[in-house]
Amino acid sequence: MIKLLWIDDNLDHDLTEKRMALYMEDDIDPHFARDATEAYLRLREEHFDVVIVDLRLPPGPDDMWNEHRENGIQKFGYVLLSYVLSQIRNDFRHLSDTHFGVFTIEAQEENPELFLAPISLPEQNFKMKTHAYYENAFVDFIRNVHKSWQ
């Protein structure tokens, strides 16, 4: 069973079908978060096998993002990933065997920093959102992220 956390603010809009498809898969135990604060709170407390992040994520209510907010940063998905993975030996030790993936509207070339430390995302764990990206393909993407090395 893959315990999944999918972090995306569009879960209730254009991603509702993918969300429901995950509930219908027997080998996936899906959990969801809509903003960086909610995701941060879940990640700090729980272990997940796979975490899928949208890069353009709202920060949510916590003051911890204020500095980035003031600097006009919009990619709180990236900020969250950097924060968690840079603390992977400390506060987020329980996520050391978690597989991280990115599912976003942006192209891979626009985000070269994702593939550098501290995130060091494997290229196959990056998927661009497109209209033609069907539910089955998305579920397979999650299974592949789970199998990936990190």
Partner: peptide
């Protein structure tokens, strides 16, 4: 309001 219902389920389960 299905999005709010699903949000409540998600948070309740945590």
């Amino acid at each position: 309001d299905l999005p709010s219902v699903m949000d409540a389920v998600e948070k309740l389960s945590a």
